[in-house]
């Protein structure tokens, strides 16, 4: 089974949940920007939740499906279509051999994930299939997809076969068929408040002037076009530190918000460097990282402070919902 890339889109790369354990050698984590969407896409097609899938950014690719395929598309709504017909998101979908999966306007969010049942047949590099774009390792030949690429897919797991066959029969000669059930991402991620990102204070919060501290939680910040998988540069009224000071570089994490000298913060994301020396004003809570990943340049966001305990609680709740979803899917598969 394979997929041929007709048009690559703006930035389409293979990502899993990241390459952990090598940051001490300077190897960045990478992985999906919106890990929740990636995990759900995988679960819908019967994969392990951390399997690598295609991460599609703002302008989607055009892909020819060489053999019958079982897929799920999650994340932002980039108007996916198969042979010109809209495909619903967040559902298992059977795609008929020879059909073309393409994307249109970016309606909500900015990143979509396409998982195939069985996963993509690429080698793991340092325990991960994620593409480290700047380092040129992992994923498909260490790079984003290009026109003409042919990516092989693995055989689908046994447990997915029943649903696949059921959908295939439903599809008939149609280019695709989607299940009549779906996952609502709002039941896992706080999409209702997607422009209010919750944070906890960072290590150097107290180094900022009281006015800047206040301003950080009150003003809106705009995502600048100078934002990518490494980090989002956001701008508002510039934030000032009490006195100019230099830090010795130290570890940073997914969602760390640094403030360089110009006073405009940077939110560090999937392809972040391993260490940073700018003062850290805040840290985005893990449960809200998927929301950041779906913001696009030009959109605005605010930050809301919560405590570490609340952040942990929200994370645990989110994971509990994921567990519930996993169990629900298992029961579903048994019933089909």
């Amino acid at each position: 089974m394979s997929i041929k890339v007709e048009r690559p889109g703006l930035l389409t790369s293979l990502q899993d949940l990241g390459r952990y354990g090598f940051q001490k050698y300077g190897v960045i984590v990478s992985g999906a920007m919106d890990a929740v969407s990636l995990r759900i896409a995988n679960l819908l097609v019967g994969n392990q939740e951390g399997e690598a899938a295609l991460e599609i950014t703002l302008v989607g690719p055009s892909l020819t499906v060489k053999e019958d395929l079982f897929i799920a598309i999650t994340g932002g709504d980039l108007s996916p279509q198969i042979d010109g017909e809209p495909v619903p998101l967040w559902r298992p979908v059977y795609v008929r051999k020879g059909s073309i999966l393409s994307f249109g306007a970016c309606r909500t969010g900015s990143r979509a994930y396409v998982a195939v049942s069985g996963g993509f047949a690429v080698e793991e590099v340092m325990n991960s299939k994620s593409t480290y774009l700047r380092g040129g390792i992992g994923g498909f030949k260490g790079r984003a997809l290009k026109a003409g690429d042919i990516i092989q897919c693995n055989k689908m797991p046994k447990k997915s076969e029943d649903l696949f066959i059921k959908l295939k029969n439903k599809g008939g000669f149609h280019p695709f068929a989607a299940a009549d059930w779906y996952v609502n991402p709002a039941s896992v991620v706080n999409i209702k408040n997607k422009t209010e990102i919750r944070v906890i204070r960072g290590g150097e919060f107290d180094h900022f002037t009281p006015a800047s501290q206040k301003q950080f939680f009150e003003q809106e910040f705009k995502i600048t076009p100078n934002s990518d998988r490494m980090g989002y540069r956001i701008e508002g009224r510039a934030l000032k530190a009490e006195e100019s000071f230099e830090l010795i570089s130290e570890a940073v994490s997914h969602g760390t918000i640094q403030v360089p000298k110009d006073g405009n913060p940077i939110i560090l994301l999937a392809d972040r460097q391993t260490t940073g020396g700018y003062p850290k004003i805040a840290q985005v809570i893990t449960a809200d990282l998927p929301l950041i990943a779906q913001l696009k340049p030009g959109e605005k966001t605010r930050f809301k402070e919560i405590t570490l305990e609340e952040a942990e609680q929200l994370y645990l709740e989110q994971e509990q919902k994921m567990q519930q979803l996993k169990m629900g899917l298992q029961l579903k598969k048994h019933k089909e």
Partner: peptide, 16 residues
């Protein structure tokens, strides 16, 4: 035609 959805275990099932 879809009449409503029933949610169970975070899955939304269309009722036809």
């Amino acid at each position: 035609q879809v009449l409503c959805v029933l949610e169970a275990m975070k899955l939304f099932n269309e009722i036809h």
